[in-house]
C-alpha cells in the first residue's frame, strides 16, 4: 500500500438520507501511484459525480462510506491540523479564472497569501524567488505579471498563474476542476501544456476533471468516465476515446462536434423524458433508459467492469461479459 499516493476504496457519497438520498458517487475505487506521476481525467456530463469526486479528494466534503487515503492519511477523517498539512500536498485549480482573483489586489497578492498561509518563507527576497520560480514553470515572469491587476491579463494567463500558485506549494497532486472550460480555445493549449510540464518536470499528478473529451485525449494518461455517479468505462485515455466500448461512451464520443464539414452528424438522437432518466435508486445499469442495447438483465444488477481491451481498458456493460464457461 505504501506505493499509493492517493487511494480511494469503495468511496460512496450520498446526498440526503443514506438509504433514500441521491447517490452522487457510487462505490468508486481508484489508485494513483507515487512513482508514476500521471494526469487522470475524470469525465462525464453534468450530474455524473465528477465534481463530487473532486470535492471529496480536496476534503471539502466527506464520504458517506469508504475510505480516501493519501500517503497513509485518512482524508475522510482528518483533523483540521491534518487537513492543513494535507493541503500542502494536494492543491486545487478551479474553473473560473475570473472569479479566483480579488479584482482590487495586484496579482502578487495571491502568492503572498499562500506564502503566509503555509509559512513558506518569512524572507522577502526568498519569497520573491519562490514566486519567480513558480511563474517560470508556467512560462511567465514575475516582472510581467506580479504588479498587474487581474483584469490586465488574459483568461489563459490568469489560469496559468493559478497553476503557478498551486505549484509554488510543491504539492504532489493538483485537482484541476474544469481548468480550461472558461478559457478561449486558442489559449487552452498553454494551460494543458503547463499540466504536462508539471507532471514531467515537477513529478506532480493531476486529477483533471472535465466534460471535454478532446482535451482529455490530448493530455490525459488515464481516463475514468462517469454516468450518474457510476464509473462506466476506464482505461488509457487514447484507448478509451479511440475505441469506446460502453454504449454511453460511444454516444458521448460520437456527439463531440468534429471540426470537419465533410463529416457531419448522422442520425437523430431522441432524449427520453427527464423523469425516466432519474435512476438514482435503480439497482442496475444507470444508462438503461437511454441505451439502444438495453435488455432485462441490465436492470437486475449493476454490471461489473469487464475487461474490454489492453492496458486495463474496462467497461461496465453486460455486452462485454465473457461467455459462460462450458
Amino acid at each position: 500500500m505504501s506505493d499509493a499516493l492517493l487511494d480511494l476504496r469503495d468511496v460512496r457519497k450520498v446526498y440526503g438520507d443514506p438509504d433514500t438520498g441521491l447517490v452522487a458517487l457510487n462505490d468508486l475505487s481508484l489508485t494513483i501511484r507515487k512513482d508514476e506521476p500521471e494526469i487522470v481525467t475524470i469525465a462525464g456530463e453534468s450530474g455524473s459525480g465528477k465534481s463530487t469526486l473532486a470535492n471529496l479528494v480536496l476534503g471539502f466534503t466527506r464520504p458517506t462510506s469508504g475510505q480516501i487515503m493519501f500517503d497513509g492519511t485518512d482524508v475522510g477523517n482528518a483533523s483540521a491540523k491534518q487537513m492543513k498539512a494535507y493541503h500542502r500536498q494536494v492543491q486545487a485549480v478551479f474553473q473560473d479564472p475570473f472569479g479566483s482573483y480579488n479584482p482590487f489586489y495586484r496579482v502578487g497578492h495571491v502568492f503572498d497569501m499562500v506564502i503566509r498561509n503555509f509559512k513558506l518563507s518569512s524572507n522577502k527576497t526568498e519569497a520573491r524567488q519562490m514566486m519567480e520560480e513558480a511563474l517560470n514553470a508556467v512560462g511567465l515572469t514575475g516582472d510581467d505579471v506580479l504588479r498587474k491587476y487581474p483584469h490586465q491579463l488574459s483568461g489563459g494567463q490568469r489560469q496559468r498563474i493559478m497553476m503557478a500558485r498551486a505549484y509554488m506549494v510543491k504539492p504532489r497532486l493538483i485537482v484541476a476542476d474544469e481548468p480550461v472550460s472558461m478559457v478561449d480555445a486558442s489559449l487552452r493549449a498553454s494551460i494543458l501544456d503547463v499540466m504536462m510540464r508539471l507532471r514531467d518536470e515537477g513529478g506532480i499528478s493531476f486529477l483533471y476533471v472535465t466534460h471535454d473529451l478532446s482535451t482529455a485525449y490530448q493530455v490525459g494518461d488515464r481516463i475514468l468516465l462517469f454516468y450518474q455517479g457510476t464509473l462506466v468505462e476506464h482505461g488509457k485515455a487514447t484507448d478509451v476515446i479511440s475505441n469506446p466500448q460502453h454504449p454511453y461512451v460511444q454516444l458521448l464520443i460520437d456527439s463531440v462536434p468534429k471540426p470537419d464539414p465533410t463529416q457531419r452528424w448522422q442520425g437523430e438522437i431522441i432524449l427520453p423524458a427527464e423523469e425516466e432518466l432519474r435512476t438514482a435508486h435503480s439497482t442496475g445499469c444507470r444508462f438503461v433508459p437511454r441505451c439502444p442495447h438495453a435488455q432485462p438483465a441490465c436492470s437486475a444488477a449493476l454490471p461489473p467492469a469487464y475487461e474490454v481491451g489492453p492496458r486495463g481498458h474496462r467497461a461496465a456493460c453486460i455486452l462485454h461479459a465473457p461467455p459462460p464457461q462450458a
Binding site: S186, L192, S242, V256
Partner: peptide
C-alpha cells in the same frame, strides 16, 4: 486549436 479526437499531436 480544436483538439483532435483521432490524433495526438503537440498542441
Amino acid at each position: 486549436s480544436v483538439p483532435s479526437l483521432t490524433e495526438r499531436r503537440p498542441m
